[in-house]
Design a protein around this nucleic acid. Structure first.
Lengths: 271, 271
DNA sequence: TAGATTGTTAATCGATTAACAATC
DNA sequence: TAGATTGTTAATCGATTAACAATC
């Protein structure tokens, strides 16, 4: 059992990961209040705006410190600042985006980057026919420039929007160049050394989770795959034959599965 | 304390939410093995491919049933089928995408849709200058057609890729039309009636979580926001003045916060 | 039979929640 | 002072993990 906190499991300064993941939600809600010049907000109101319950919000805030006032609530501007600081948004974060396809374009145009201290340091692609074009007013540069860009602009965050086949290779180069945080849009399990954080955004997975619940709503629970009682299966002498037996049992099933099974090499969002 | 399982908290058929979220990962790894015609796989091998540990994988599979063979491992084709069935991927899921901007385009072109039983039933947009164009070979249709499309094609899943200002309104129309699962790319907290599932994909939040950890790696922990000891604050007679005092204390902070705070109205990925 | 690997148990850990004392 | 609301406690719940008996 690992006791040394590492990577995403880290509870830096005692702030639980689940709390960290909600801080951006609170920040967004607070920013909206700030723009409406609302001076203070109660945990109840803010929780409603962020879509959580107020007990959770107060618990979350308690990890940051006592920034509220009993009987009054929280000062909006003060909390905006404290959360921004806690999240590291009071500094500039240069980001490279690798793989300028449809999704890369979409991200390059994403206005939310700049507003949160994230600055697009460069757009990179390996395809010569893409290199030299512009996206969101920035030139697409060749992958060969990756190392010099990361080095000269002190880039520590990389976004991967390549096809899945290229993702690990791109990841390796990013890490080698000095990037220590990666946001991966390719449907690939990335292997990284200790000390490098990877977060994953995967449309396919989200849709599949929705489908799981949707299936149950319509009352069409999938029928049991295994028989109610153990069938009199042929005794097989060794492991290989045991597996073969199971394969036979699954024969009809496999046919169906084939229809879905192919095609996992595609990008979540092809570049 | 709520005892009736509802929405995403549901543990349908006793399968924990955390397990459901990993099933697509296993399915992806299994599909890759299937394509390489690998007949069986051990929990250890499959776990490595999926990026989890083997104890977790075996525990996850135990919720589905006993699909492995002791001493042998799991039959790849059989598991592919069982997981597909469990996730509801053995049926067709028509999906509408609302908001055909950069991101909407990217999603429309996403090959992973079809391969998992998800079929783009329609692309919709409210902007007349976008309606009529094509994306991924499909015509962009006007929002006014939403209801008839959802109804005639039995659409139960909707993807929102609109600017945040339009998201709730679009969501309401989707729900009203009969959609009961929503994948939301807009940085908006959506309110939906019971029985409707919402999942959220938010680039901004992912980047902020990375920034939080990145900040700690560089050893630049943010200095404490509140003083080490309680300052001799002016006694204020009522709540309003107490809040005002806090505001004053936060004055310097607020200036900084302003630089980050604006701009939350933008789309995660503007359409 | 011997080796391999599953399926399950039980311990532990982390997250959520209601409730309420503290206090503005 | 009376009302409001925070910050914290403690109970509960869900998820993770190591270990190992079961069994192929």
């Amino acid at each position: 059992m690992r006791r040394t906190p590492v990577g995403r499991q880290t509870r830096a300064r005692g702030i639980p990961e689940a709390t960290v993941a909600r801080l951006p939600l609170y920040l967004r809600a607070l920013t909206a209040l700030s723009e409406r010049s609302v001076p203070t907000v109660s945990s109840e109101e803010l929780a409603a705006a962020a879509g959580v319950n107020s007990a959770k919000l107060r618990k979350d805030f308690s990890y940051l410190g006592s920034y509220g006032t009993r009987g009054v609530g929280y000062d909006v501007e003060y909390l905006v600042y404290q959360i921004s600081r806690e999240l590291g948004l009071t500094q500039d974060w240069p980001v490279v985006i690798v793989g300028i396809g449809n999704l890369g374009h979409a991200l390059a145009n994403y206005g939310g980057f700049a507003s949160r201290g994230f600055r697009v340091a460069a757009l990179l692609d390996a395809d010569p026919s893409v290199v030299g074009s512009t996206a969101a007013g920035l030139p697409v540069r060749h992958m060969d420039e990756l190392e010099s860009i990361v080095d000269s602009q002190q880039v520590s965050i990389g976004v991967i929007t390549t096809p899945p086949g290229a993702a690990q290779q791109v990841c390796d180069r990013l890490v080698e160049a000095g990037v220590t945080s990666i946001l991966n849009f390719a449907p690939t399990v990335l292997t990284v050394p200790d000390g490098v954080d990877v977060r994953k955004v995967d449309l396919s997975i989200e849709l599949q989770i929705l489908a799981f619940h949707e299936q149950r709503k319509s009352g069409e629970e999938p029928e049991e795959g295994r028989p109610a009682e153990e069938p009199a299966r042929e005794r097989a002498p060794g492991p290989v034959r045991a597996a073969a037996a199971k394969l036979r049992r699954a024969a009809g099933a496999a046919k169906d599965a084939k229809e879905l099974g192919e095609n996992d090499r595609q990008a979540v969002l092809p570049a």
